[in-house]
Amino acid sequence: MVSLVQTRLMPAIVIAALIVVLPAFFPSAYYYRIGVLVFIFALAVVGLNLLMGFAGQVSLGHAGFLGIGAYSVAIGPVHFGVPSWLCLFGGAALSGVVAFIVGRPILKLKGHYLAVATLGLGLLLAIVLTNEARWTGGPDGMSVPRLVLFGWSARGATTWYWIAGATFIVAFVLALNLMDSPTGRALRAIHDSEIAARVLGIDVARKKVAIFVISAMYASVAGSFLALFNGYVTPDAAGFLRSIELVAMVVLGGMGSIVGSLVGAVVLVVLPQALTVFHDYEQVLLGLIVMVFMIFLRRGIVPSLAAAFAGRRK
């Protein structure tokens, strides 16, 4: 039993150690910023991976929840004078409620029909954010007040590195635990065969909605962090391309691999930064690299490499 706990928490401990050690090699605040972005996106991607990788449900509108989180910490303090930290939780709760209400009818849909329904949902949210300029500043976006906790204000990439890093580790461990719980096993059963799961007496609809709510809350917290960290938010935080980016991170890292979520976020945050030296050829290379990764590591980076290592050991 002890060894089981150890192996299960091993990745979390390794990643936590990396988070602590890495800054020693950061030459400037720019690297901290990249780190923060990685953690924030990884947070959203872990949530989405629970939905996609374990429950087998694709969401093409997940950035909508990112948007709810981001605009909660913008609108709440600016228009209603509510403290940011409260808005962060409020946003997560709101995202959960939205996911709960729309989850049941939408998650009845299968495969690509679910994809288009979630896509529609994400677009609806983005349209509202763009149109209600009185509240959201419209396409130009709006400023986000700093996060203030007990009179201490969180600013700068270095501070946010530790906030986002710690939050990511907590979210990571929560996700690992969730996967090993009875709910997690039920979810995997749904992924393998929904009908078989139903025959076994699993309330498929309820489990699916539950995981949808959790993944929406993960995305919402990530969105709040992103807005607070940037100090500014525009509707593209909730846009279709953002949703695609999140799905790409899940698939690239490996569906069903929580560690893969981090790897996927690292690759897709760092790669565009690395590709800037190619100027006009940035997009060509980005597209090419995504294709090559998917063709040759089709199960995602982490599961494919893990399989390759296991194979070699034999």
């Binding site: 996609m52 694709v58 495969g111 690509h112 695609i244 799905v247 790409a248 698939v251 690239l252 569906m255 050829y281 940035e282 997009q283 060509v284 290379l285 980005l286 597209g287 090419l288 690299i289 995504v290 294709m291 998917m294 063709i295 089709r298 199960r299």
Partner: peptide
Amino acid sequence: ASPVVLIMITIGASIFLRGV
């Protein structure tokens, strides 16, 4: 490969073609 992976390949292709 799984359907989602194939979709990702076509998304990669669309980024690539736009870039070209």
